[in-house]
Design a protein around this nucleic acid. Structure first.
Length: 682
RNA sequence: GGGCCUGUAGCUCAGUUGGUUAGAGCAGGGGACUCAUAAUCCCUUUGUCGGCGGUUCGAGUCCGUCCAGGCCUACCA
C-alpha cells in the first residue's frame, strides 16, 4: 500500500522467572489484537517481544533448581512461547535479553552515555547476605518497621503504617533468601545523571500525545516537579547480567538492558528476514508503540525515552499503559484459585473466549480489568455463540449445494450499514478502545439475526418455487456474518480462517468488509466455537487451587524437612529440675572486642561486656566460623558463672553459647533487638 | 499527608463540543418460532445520572465542596 504506515510494536518483556498467567495475557492479547488490526489494515507492522532474563531473582531460581542461569532461562522461554502461541499471540520475533545482539546494543547505549558525560560513580551502602554472598534488594529483606514497629515488613515500606524507608533503616533485618541477618556493605555503583535530560522529558511527556493524560499528569506531579535523581544502573557482582565493558565487576542493572531487548529482538528479526534495522529504529516516519502495565510506567516513560534520546534512536510514538487483572473483583489469589496459569486455562477452555472477553472489556485508560467469571461465561455464550457464530450456523447448510448467489441481493441496506460502521470500528481499534469496537460490531450482529428471523429461510426451503429466494436470504446472512468476521479478525483470527475456508475466500484485508462476496461455493459448515460450560470454569479454578496447594506443600517440605541426624548424634540429656537449670547463669553480653590468637587454629579471643564496667575475657572455638570483625558489636548469650579456666593462651572467664558440630558449622545464639547486656536469660 | 482515576438501571457499561421525555447488552417478566451449539425473534419492568451548592434560558455533561471505592507516592520486578 502506498500510504501504509510503518509500525513497530512491543509488549513488555515477561520476566523469565515464572509461568505466564491470565494477568500477563491481558497485555499480550491487547497488543496482539492491535497488531493484527494494523496488519489487516495493510500497515507494515511488526510485533516484537523477548524474555527478560537478567537479575538477582533469576540467579536465585537457577541456583535453587541446581541448573545454570542459561539453562533456566531457556526452559522458561520455551514455555512462554508455547503459551503465547496457544493463545493466538503471534510475534514476528521472540528473543531474550541475554543475547549477543542485546549485549552489542547495550554497549552502544553505554558508550553514548559515556560520550555525553552523563555517568558518574558513587559508593552505595546496602544490606548484604553473607551466606548467599549477594547484595539484597529491598524486597529480599524483612524486618520491623522503623516508624510504627510492625513486625515482618518488607525492606522498602510498611503495610501497617504505609511508611517508606530504606532497607538499612529497618529494625532486625532478615534476608528472605537465607533467613540470616544481613550485614552492611558498601560497593561502587554507576549512575546516569538523568536530570540533565529534564527539559527534554518535560517536553516529551507533556506534549505530542505520547502518553495517556493520567500518566502525563502523574509524571508531572511526581517526578518532573523536582530534580530527577540519578539512576543507579549498575550492580556489583555476583549478578546475572552483562558485565559493563569499561567497569569490570559491575553489571548493568536488569532495567538498563531490558528495554534494549526490544531493539535486540528487532535486530534478530532483521537478520532473519533481511530487513533493515535502521528503518525501524532510526527512520522518524516509523511509529514505535510500546504496550506495558502500569507497574513499569516510569522505566518506560522516563528512563527509556532518555536512553533513546541520548543514543540517537527513534522515540516512541505512544506508550499504551494498561491496568491489572482482577478476578471477580479481587486481586488474583493463589489460594482462591484465581491465579490461573495460561497452561491451566488451556486445559479447560478455549483461548478465543478469553481473547473476546478481554477485548470486550479493554479500553484505552489505565484501569484494572475485571474477569468476572459469570459474565465471562454468559458474554461468550450469548455474544459469540448465540448471536455471531449462530448466524452462519443457522444458514450455511441451506446453500451448501447452491453456493452464494451470483449477485448480491437487496438486503434493505444492512450490508451498507456495516460498511458505514467500518471506520468508527477501525477508529476504536486504533485508539485501543476495544470495548467500543466490540460494541459497535455486536450491533451489527443484533441487526443480522432479526433479518434471518423475518425471512424464515427454514420455511422457504420447503417450497421448490422459492429456492432462489432462499439462496438470496442465506447469501445476505452469510455476507453479514462475514463482514462481522472481518471486523473481529484481530480478536478471533481462527474464526476468520474458518470463515475464509467456509466461503472459499481467505480473509486478509480490512477492505474486504466493504464488498459482498458472491458466486462462491459454500463448504460444509462445521462448528466454529463451543459454548462455555460453567463446570469447565469451575474445574479450571479448582485445578488452580490444587496446583497452589501442591506448591505450598512442596515449599513447606523443603523449608521444614529437618533431618533427625542431630538428635541421633547427640541424644537428649537426662531430665533436670528447675533449680538445677537456675544454677546456670546465662547472660546477654556484647562483644566489644574480638581478635585472633596467634598460634591458635580454633580459638578467638573475645572481650564481652555485661554492661557498665563489667567485662569478661572468653576464648571461644569459633575461629573457622566467624570473622572477628563481624562479631564486634554483636549481642551473644554467655554462661557467666562458669568457673574460669586456664587455657594455653590465657584465662577464659566464661563461655558463649552456640550450636552445631563445630569447625565451620558453629552458630552462635543471638538475641532479638532490645535486649541489654547484663540481662539474665530465663 | 499528597497526587491521579472512578462513582449513570440488579450486573457490565455507552452517553460526542452542556440542548428537547437519560440509552445498550446481560439478568428478570410475558409471548412467538423451531433453521441453529435449549441458540433466535417480539413485547416488557427498573434509574432522586454518589450527596450538596454554584454558573447558565438550560447540566449526567462545566466549577466548588463533601462522601465512597480503586490506584500511585522512584532505584522494586
Amino acid at each position: 500500500m502506498a500510504n501504509s504506515r510503518k509500525i513497530l510494536v512491543t509488549s513488555a518483556l515477561p520476566y523469565a522467572n515464572g509461568p505466564i498467567h491470565l494477568g500477563h495475557l491481558v497485555e499480550y492479547i491487547q497488543t496482539d489484537i492491535w497488531v493484527k488490526f494494523q496488519k489487516l489494515r495493510g500497515n507494515d507492522c511488526i510485533y516484537l517481544c523477548a524474555d527478560d532474563t537478567h537479575g538477582t531473582a533469576i540467579m536465585m531460581s537457577a541456583q535453587r533448581t541446581g541448573c545454570s542461569e542459561e539453562e533456566w532461562i531457556e526452559g522458561i522461554s520455551e514455555k512462554h512461547q508455547r503459551d503465547f502461541s496457544q493463545f493466538g499471540i503471534e510475534f514476528d520475533n521472540y528473543g531474550g535479553t541475554n543475547s549477543p545482539e542485546n549485549y552489542e546494543l547495550c554497549k552502544q547505549f553505554w558508550q553514548a552515555f559515556r560520550d555525553a558525560g552523563l555517568i558518574r560513580e558513587e559508593a552505595v551502602t546496602q544490606l548484604f547476605d553473607d551466606e548467599k554472598g549477594i547484595f539484597l534488594a529491598d524486597r529480599f529483606v524483612r524486618g520491623k518497621c522503623p516508624k510504627c514497629g510492625a513486625d515482618d515488613q518488607y525492606g522498602d515500606s510498611c503495610d501497617q503504617c504505609g511508611a517508606t524507608y530504606s532497607a538499612r533503616e529497618i529494625i532486625n533485618p532478615v534476608s528472605t533468601l537465607s533467613e540470616t541477618t544481613p550485614s552492611v556493605k558498601t560497593a561502587d555503583h554507576l549512575f546516569i545523571q538523568i536530570e540533565q535530560l529534564h527539559d527534554f522529558l518535560d517536553e516529551w511527556t507533556q506534549s505530542g500525545d505520547h502518553l495517556q493524560t493520567e500518566i502525563a499528569n502523574y509524571l508531572k506531579g511526581h517526578f518532573l516537579n523536582e530534580p530527577l535523581r540519578d539512576w543507579d544502573v549498575s550492580r556489583p557482582q555476583p549478578y546475572f547480567g552483562f558485565e559493563i565493558p569499561d567497569a569490570p565487576g559491575h553489571y548493568w542493572f536488569v532495567w538498563f538492558d531490558a528495554p534494549i531487548g526490544y531493539m535486540a529482538s528487532t535486530k534478530q528479526y532483521c537478520d532473519r528476514t533481511g530487513d533493515d534495522f535502521d528503518s525501524w529504529w532510526k527512520d522518524p516516519d516509523t511509529e514505535i508503540h510500546h504496550f506495558i502495565g502500569k507497574d513499569i510506567t516510569y522505566f518506560h516513560t522516563l528512563f527509556w525515552p532518555a536512553m533513546l534520546k541520548v543514543a540517537g534512536f527513534n522515540l516512541p510514538e505512544k506508550i499504551h499503559i494498561h491496568g491489572f487483572l482482577t478476578v471477580d473483583g479481587r486481586k488474583m489469589s493463589k489460594r482462591d484459585g484465581t491465579f490461573v496459569k495460561a497452561e491451566t486455562f488451556l486445559k479447560h477452555l478455549n483461548p478465543a473466549a478469553l481473547r473476546y472477553y478481554y477485548a470486550s472489556k479493554l479500553n484505552n485508560r489505565v484501569e484494572d480489568l475485571d474477569l468476572n467469571l459469570k459474565e465471562f461465561t454468559t458474554k461468550v455464550n450469548t455474544d459469540l455463540v448465540g448471536k455471531f457464530v449462530n448466524l452462519a450456523s443457522r444458514t450455511a447448510k441451506f446453500i451448501q449445494q447452491s453456493g452464494l448467489s451470483s449477485e448480491y441481493p437487496d438486503d434493505g441496506g444492512l450490508f451498507q450499514q456495516g460498511v458505514d460502521a467500518g471506520e468508527a470500528i477501525a477508529a476504536a481499534y486504533e485508539a485501543c478502545d476495544f470495548n467500543r469496537a466490540i460494541r459497535l460490531i455486536m450491533e451489527l450482529a443484533d441487526r443480522a439475526n432479526p433479518y434471518v428471523e423475518s425471512n424464515a429461510p427454514w420455511t422457504l426451503r420447503k417450497d421448490p418455487e422459492r429456492q432462489q429466494e432462499l439462496q438470496d436470504i442465506c447469501t445476505v446472512a452469510l455476507n453479514l456474518f462475514r463482514q462481522i468476521v472481518i471486523y473481529l479478525q484481530p480478536v478471533l483470527p481462527e474464526i476468520a480462517d474458518k470463515t475464509g475456508a467456509l466461503l472459499g475466500d481467505p480473509i486478509t484485508r480490512w477492505e474486504q468488509a466493504a464488498t459482498p462476496l458472491v458466486g462462491t461455493p459454500v463448504a460444509k459448515f462445521e462448528h466454529m466455537m463451543k459454548r462455555i460450560e460453567e463446570k469447565d470454569v469451575d474445574a479450571m479454578i479448582e485445578e488452580s487451587k490444587a496446583e497452589n496447594a501442591a506448591a505450598e506443600a512442596a515449599a513447606s517440605e523443603t523449608q521444614y524437612n529437618d533431618s533427625a541426624q542431630p538428635l541421633i548424634d547427640e541424644p537428649l540429656a537426662d531430665e533436670i529440675t528447675f533449680d538445677e537449670f537456675a544454677k546456670v547463669d546465662l547472660r546477654v553480653a556484647r562483644v566489644i572486642k574480638a581478635e585472633h590468637v596467634e598460634e591458635a587454629n580454633k580459638l578467638l579471643k573475645l572481650t564481652l561486656s555485661l554492661g557498665g564496667e563489667e567485662t569478661r575475657q572468653v576464648f571461644a572455638g569459633i575461629k573457622k566460623a566467624y570473622n572477628p570483625e563481624d562479631l564486634e558489636g554483636r549481642l551473644v548469650v554467655m554462661v557467666a558463672n562458669l568457673a574460669p579456666r586456664k587455657m594455653r593462651f590465657g584465662v577464659s572467664e566464661g563461655m558463649i553459647t552456640a550450636a552445631g558440630p563445630g569447625g565451620e558449622e558453629v552458630f552462635m545464639l543471638g538475641i532479638d533487638e532490645g535486649a541489654q547486656p547484663g540481662q539474665r536469660v530465663h
